[in-house]
Design a protein around this nucleic acid. Structure first.
Length: 260
DNA sequence: AGTCAAACCTGGGCGC
DNA sequence: TGCGCCCAGGTTTGAC
């Protein structure tokens, strides 16, 4: 599931329940996800308060008091769920965080998710976070910044969009959506994009992600979205079959007629 | 630096 | 029904 809009949605959903609240217990059902020791996680979290909750790229950061940072990454199949009252466990529940008024669960079918605990209010010890590119929805992510960063890159544009150190939060699906809406093939090389194409691409990065974040619930029903046609292998505009290419180990889909 | 394959995991779907 | 293979909205690592 989780790329920027999905993670943003998870954070917004969980936020009202946990900000200002104190961890009372942690149940570790699957230590595989932990990048810290179970005993340390329990010891540190219990009686810690959640000061703030924030998304950075596809990471979720819990800023704690006393100062520590709990960091979650949902990877492919992770999700965070809130239960006001205890319910029976789901097969894929990996971690349960107990508060006085309810519990937050980290559910993850494929067990690829990650849980980090770092000192202070920082994350310099996590490489992916310390080298993370700009937040695409931030006002400081301007066309001139995008253009400047892009000039330093070579290679297929799809790989670059998915590169978290280039720009944060875009994955395989939204990468395809952005390129479809921009009318650019995923195989195009960054160094060959024309000025106008870069402008459109920048605009679509903002537009697609912004719309996905603000209209998250409706998204799966929107037939205008490439996302909902991708798997069927047919262009939403009726051009016919989509083509599939492997880029950076993932399949990219594109319409050979709409995308140049 | 870019690209590719493989690894980390589980499970659904498909062909035989 | 069973088996093997492909695929999945992510990231890291190691080789060329």
């Amino acid at each position: 599931m989780p790329e920027l809009p999905d993670v943003e949605n998870v954070v917004n959903k969980i936020k009202p329940y946990v900000v200002g609240k104190v961890f009372k217990d942690v149940e570790i059902l699957d230590p595989l996800l932990l990048q810290t020791s179970p005993s340390k996680l329990k010891k540190v979290l219990i009686e810690s308060r959640v000061e703030e909750l924030e998304r950075r790229g596809k990471f979720i950061l819990f800023y704690l008091a006393p100062p520590r940072t709990l960091i979650l990454h949902l990877r492919m199949t992770g999700d965070l769920l809130w239960f006001p009252t205890s319910k029976e466990r789901h097969l894929h529940d990996r971690l349960i965080f107990f508060f006085e008024h309810g519990e937050m669960r980290f559910r993850d079918q494929r067990r690829l998710g990650k849980v980090y605990l770092v000192p202070e209010r920082g994350f310099s010890s996590i490489k992916a976070l310390s080298t993370m590119g700009p937040e695409p929805l931030s006002p400081s992510f301007t066309f001139s910044l995008f253009d400047e960063l892009l000039r330093r890159k070579k290679g297929k544009i799809k790989s670059i969009l998915m590169d978290q150190s280039f720009v944060a939060g875009i994955g395989n699906i939204y990468g395809d959506e952005i390129l479809f809406q921009a009318g650019i093939r995923p195989t195009r090389r960054a160094e060959n994009l024309k000025g106008g194409e870069k402008k459109v691409l920048f605009k679509k990065i903002k537009e697609v992600l912004w719309e996905a974040v603000s209209d998250y619930e409706q998204l799966s029903e929107k037939s205008s979205w490439f996302i909902n046609w991708r798997r069927k292998g047919v262009c939403p505009r009726g051009c016919g079959r989509l083509e599939r290419v492997k880029i950076g180990g993932r399949y990219s889909y594109f319409c050979p007629s709409c995308q140049k």
